[in-house]
Design a binder for these strands. Sequence first.
DNA 1: AAGGTAACCTGACTGC
DNA 2: TGCAGTCAGGTTACCT
Length: 279
Amino acid sequence: MPELPEVEVTRLGVAPHLEGRLVDSVLLRRDGLRWPFPPALPGLLAGQRISHTGRRGKYLLIHFGHGTLIIHLGMSGHLRVLPLGTEPKKHDHFDLVVEGQGDAGRQVLRLHDPRRFGAVLWHANDDGDLDQHALLRGLGVEPLEAHFSGELLFRASRGRKAPVKQFLLAGDVVVGVGNIYACESLFRAGINPKTAAGRISRGRYDKLALAIRAILAEAIVQGGSTLRDFIAVNGQSGYFQQSYFVYDREGVPCRNCSAPVRRIVQGQRSTFYCVHCQK
DNA sequence: AAGGTAACCTGACTGC
DNA sequence: TGCAGTCAGGTTACCT
């Protein structure tokens, strides 16, 4: 789960508990997830002050004076802020304990990730620019920033034969749009997900860019989507899934034209769309 | 360069 | 009740 809105909702939720605080300790309960945790992490972070949080695509960033902690939630990860002493559950792999501030006591930022496709990595300032980090280097434009546009999608797609759905998911042109929001955006823009990216007009990309922006922004306001694993930091569920028009609605009447929503597979991922509304 | 596929892993659900 | 099969929000590595 977590696509851009879920990561941003997570960031907004954890930020007040982290920014400006000192790290007490770091606890690693296993060697790593997708990649090994940096073994030196506890020593690198203990006693250091968190300056601010950020996000690049689906990567959550926790910035320190000497470097940045990079967290990815994979398919099934979530972060919670809990009172110190809360018993860890199965699949709780990583704790960042922060000092209290004001009335608040020490708290723990805890990463839970059953499938373990997530990641926790460290980028030291000495290693160069963060945006040149191996995981961030090839990423496309942030869809909620001003320079994201239909023109950008149009230009980047010329000559591409891949279906537009996979073009969006690839992440090298625009970041943060995962399977749910790609399906929903294409529906809103009225574009068939199977259409070759390179054969879509400028005007239709203008519409698609607006749809992507609007849907991501709406999802953030609604607290993201709650599927099997995503729970916001405060334990509340997001409710954007109630707003789905096509995702996970195979066979259900289209909310626009009542034709049954169709499910196909593209690049090993399910795509949901309306044959009537998306040409 | 771009495209296709397998792989990583657990858990929930379905059907027999 | 159990067992096998399918599917799930992501991304990289590797091959054409």
